[in-house]
Structure formats: structure tokens, C-alpha cells
Design a protein around this nucleic acid. Structure first.
Lengths: 301, 301
DNA sequence: CATGATTATGAAAATCGCTCATGCACATCG
DNA sequence: CGATGTGCATGAGCGATTTTCATAATCATG
């Protein structure tokens, strides 16, 4: 049997307007078309949908069953149509974010909180766990935005600069490194380094300092949570290199010292990668603006 | 925008089978047809439903939204189809019953209880409140069966005899009527008669006894519930005429006496009226059989 | 029973959906 | 690197379905 939405719309219209002719009027069709349509459906279903005995065509038991289905289904379709219209107009959309940078949760959550208020219809999500292959996911439209500090040249992908930050060493106040005004690669040769559990190619200590200098630290310990890293550092179990914004609080605590990497300090830039054509979507543009300004404000607090 | 179920089926098939060609296979169509269909829908909706970048066509965000709708709607349609099939095969149907006779609840409930067990898919209901116009409702397919003891000759309506009963007088043991072996119209001229709150033309006392004899009782008091009628009778506030099956218990109680109407006793026949063509439906036939036999069994208890 | 309102029907026209044949893009492999 | 394979897109044309038009049948009512 092949019920189609057309049939549901017809059944509902006939019932609502109370008659073929009136329903036809509403649907911009002829009364004849509806008559044929109803007959066709009844033949297919092998079931009488209307009671013919009384003149203004009334629903039979089966017809009522179909009407119930119509009243559940048609609004659903209507809603999809509405969402598509919102999508076209740019009010709605999807913003699934992949983060390559672990510490970014710090500023990302406040930014998303702001964003949700402005764009309630946009479907927001953070997708961790694909730190590797995030760019591929972006290209395949599995995600819509990637937070990354390593811009690459990729077909159809644009890297929108957000803000600059300085990977900064944090150590216990009692650490011998506290003596030095800044940190060089050699200083870390005999240190335990605590990092997020990701590849070295995405860790600023290595890409910006150790790997170029071909220095291997005494050990690398991988820890998931920023708070835990700081605890371990405080208790002298190792040192870590974190973005300066993460250390804005640690900076003034008696347990820690923070030191720049190299004499001039290291500066990196955070980017939000998007598919080029989507960077101009209104909600995307808004997110990018928030992600440029909010972390800076946060920093100043 | 004109989404159709066809589109939902297609979207789902493409997603499930992972590709146009495979989906086409499943749906017994050409790959081309699906391609055209998807394109048509995308043009109409103004929204990309699939990501073309990656080769085995994957759903875009909008496509996923549509898929969600499909997964809710298609089973619903499927269910309607299934119900229609059941309807055609006679396993399912509607049995909405109107009762003209108040006292019939007594045997109707046990019958319906039995029936429900045998025909779980049939939509059973009792519709009180249309005691008047029950036959019209039957003809208009607002109900499917009417319990009545007044057969009429009506186009397309058949009256199926159920069982015979005797309208029987019930009075308090202390009533002067207890002296008489049977009751005649004149005996009731100075009595208060307690009846159900329905028209006289549907009350056996009147149609079978008083009206033909042109006797008007002292008063008529209308009471809804059988149990209350019996209470009032017991306390000598009046007498009543009820079907014998209602009185099967009262008969042996010391508070009551029951007496036949007229010397020979009055006999009436209970009928179930249905639309003629439906009397042979399997579930309808079963109901009729139950309604013929169960009340009799009940009586014997 | 005449009249207006409502639904049904048959044939022709219009539209729609599908297929066929083929093209294009991309990946894989000898 | 061209050959081959896989998967999707496209345009033309056919056929089926849907709609319309014109008109008949049916029903409700004064």
C-alpha cells in the first residue's frame, strides 16, 4: 500500500473543512481531484475511509485512524520545513566543534554559553576524542569548526586567527627552575614534563622548544585534567608548559612560579578552522567574534 | 515545499544502505531515480541533504534532521498500513455500542470482558448518552451496534435477536401488591413507579402494560442506578418493573417480592441492531454469539 | 418534487517520476 | 601513468499518475 503525505493532507482538509468542495477550495484543487484521490486510496487500502451514506462526507472508523496519523505526522513535516527555512535564512545551523587543544575548554565553555544565548536554534556540540583527524572530520562535514594552533594549507578550509598566547612553564616554587628568569630547552633535560595525553606534535613544549633543540626530557607523564597537572606540579612531581591563560590564577599563588620559554618568550596563535564558505554564515561569524574577544576579557579578570 | 513520504523512504534507504546504488537496489529503482529525487528535494528545500565531498554519499546536518523525521514517521505509516490490513482481514475493527436499555450494563460488561480477550485488536467502547437517536447514530456509522428491545424496519439495519426476558414487577414484601399472584395495569394506578430516566416509549411498564390500558400511575420517579432503584423499592417508596435477569438476586431476598405482569406473564425479546453488511464480520458474529449465550448463563448462576 | 448542495465519474490534459544511456569525478592498481 | 572500477550526476523521453473539465448521480429540504 502506498500512502503518501498528499493523502494525509487531503484527509485532514476534508475533515477540517467538512466536505470535498470546501477542502478542494482550501487546497487549490478541484473537487474532482480530491474525489479521485480518496477513491484511489480507498481502493489501495481496501478500506472505506469515509461514510458515503450521509452527504457531507464523514470519516469512517478507518478514516479516523488515518486522520490521527495525519495529525501527528503533518506538523512534524511542517516543523522540518520550518527548520530548513531557518537554515536557509541563516538563523539555524549546526556548530559541532572539535578541539585539538586540551586546555581550550577553559575559554571555550564561557564562549559557548554566550553563543547559545544569541543563537538558540543552532545545534551546538563539542566533539572530543577526534583530536587526531579533526581536519579530515571538518572536510567531511562531520564537524563544523576545529580549534587548533597549527594552521595548514588545506583545500576549502580557512584558518581564522583568534588570539595569541604564550606557552609558559609552570613549576613548583621550590623547583630549581624557579631561579631562572626564562627557560631554555637544556633546562628541561633533567625534568619530568607533565603534558596532556596527546601526540608531541601538538604540544607546544615539543614543537616550540624541545624538538628543534633535539632535547629529550628525563620523562614525560601524561595527565588528562588541567587541575591535576597543576596539583602534580605544585607537589614537585614535574613541570609543565601550559598556555598563559590557563595560568592566570596560578601566577599569583605562592605554590607556583611561571616562566617564559626562551629569552624573548614564545608566542603562538590560536585558530578556528572552518570550511571557507561557512566562515561568513551569520552565526559562524558571531562565534568567531566571540572566540576572538571573550578569551581576552577572561584573561583580564 | 512539498516533502513526500517517498523522499523520507529514499533518505532512509540511502543512509541505511550507505550509498545511492545500494539504496536503489533495495528500493527496486535505478540509481538515477534516487539521484534525481534527492536533487529535486534539495532544490525545493534549498538545503543540501548530503555531503558530496566524500564519495559514499553521507548525510549533512540538514539530512540528519530529515532522517530523524523519517525514523519517526515511517513506522507510523507502516502501523496504519498494518491496521488497515488487519481491518480487511477482519481481525480488527470498531465495536462502539449504544444501549437503549439501561439495565443492560448488567450483562453487557461481562460479555465485553470476554470479547476483549478474544479480539484484542478491536476497538471496543460503550457510548451512553445517545439513547435517543441511537438508530440514527448506527446508520451514520457513529456507532456499530445498538442494544434495543424495539426492532424497527430500517434500511440497511438488521436486528439480531439475543434472548427473551420478562419485565417483572418488584415491590417491597410489605407492599399490598405482594398479595397478588400477577400484576395488571389497574394495580399500578395508585402506585409510585420507579424507572430509569428515559422516555416512556422505551420503558416496558409503559409500552407493555400501562399505555395500552391507558392507566396513569400515581407518580413516576426517575432514578439512574439499578441498585438505587432496588433500595427505594425495598424501603417501600415505590415499585419498579425490571427485566427478570436484574432481579435474579432480589428474587430470593426477604425484602422483595417479584410478580409477573399479566396473567400469562409478559415476554420481550432483546436485540442487537447492526448494519446488515457488518453482522457477518467475524468479530461481530462472535460478539452476537456471546451476547446470546452469556446472559443466559449469568441468569442460571 | 423541485432545487441547491454535494459527491462521483469518464475522458482528456498536464504533470510527475522513473528509466536509459551516458558523462563526470575520484580512487586504486598493475 | 594510463587503465579500470566505483559511485554519483544529468538530459531526454516514456509511461504512469494526478489533475482538470464537463457532466451525471445522489442527497437534503422546503
Amino acid at each position: 500500500m502506498h500512502i503518501e503525505l498528499r493523502h494525509l493532507r487531503t484527509i485532514k482538509a476534508i475533515h477540517d473543512s467538512g466536505g470535498l468542495a470546501r477542502a478542494a477550495e482550501v487546497m487549490n484543487m478541484t473537487q474532482s481531484a480530491l474525489s479521485h484521490q480518496v477513491k484511489g486510496l480507498e481502493d489501495q487500502a481496501g478500506v472505506e475511509l469515509f461514510v458515503r451514506r450521509s452527504k457531507p462526507l464523514r470519516l469512517s472508523a478507518a478514516g479516523q485512524r488515518l486522520l490521527r496519523a495525519a495529525e501527528r505526522i503533518l506538523p512534524e513535516i511542517e516543523a522540518v520545513g520550518e527548520e530548513f527555512r531557518a537554515l536557509r535564512s541563516g538563523r539555524s545551523g549546526r556548530l559541532h566543534i572539535a578541539i585539538e587543544c586540551h586546555a581550550c575548554f577553559d575559554w571555550l565553555f564561557p564562549v559557548l554559553e554566550q553563543f547559545r544565548r544569541a543563537w538558540p536554534e543552532v545545534d551546538v556540540d563539542i566533539r572530543p576524542g577526534l583530536a587526531f583527524g579533526a581536519m579530515e572530520a571538518l572536510m567531511r562535514e562531520e564537524v563544523d569548526l576545529v580549534i587548533s594552533s597549527d594552521p595548514e594549507r588545506l583545500e576549502g578550509i580557512g584558518f581564522n586567527p583568534l588570539f595569541d598566547y604564550s606557552p609558559t612553564l609552570v613549576a613548583a616554587r621550590t623547583s630549581p627552575l624557579a631561579e631562572k628568569p626564562f627557560i631554555e630547552a637544556e633546562d628541561l633535560r633533567d625534568q619530568v614534563i607533565i603534558t596532556y595525553p596527546v601526540d608531541r606534535t601538538r604540544l607546544d613544549v615539543f614543537t616550540g622548544l624541545l624538538t628543534p633543540a633535539r632535547v629529550e626530557p628525563q620523562a614525560v607523564r601524561q595527565v588528562e585534567l588541567t587541575a591535576v597537572i597543576l596539583m602534580l606540579v605544585a607537589s614537585g612531581r614535574g613541570v609543565s608548559v601550559l598556555p598563559d591563560w590557563v595560568l592566570r590564577e596560578a601566577k599569583y599563588q605562592p605554590d607556583y612560579v611561571t616562566r617564559p620559554l626562551t629569552a624573548k618568550g614564545l608566542t603562538k596563535r590560536m585558530y578556528a578552522a572552518t570550511r571557507e564558505e561557512e566562515a561568513t554564515l551569520p552565526y559562524m561569524a558571531h562565534f568567531l567574534r566571540l572566540a576572538r574577544t571573550e578569551p581576552v576579557k577572561l584573561q583580564r579578570q
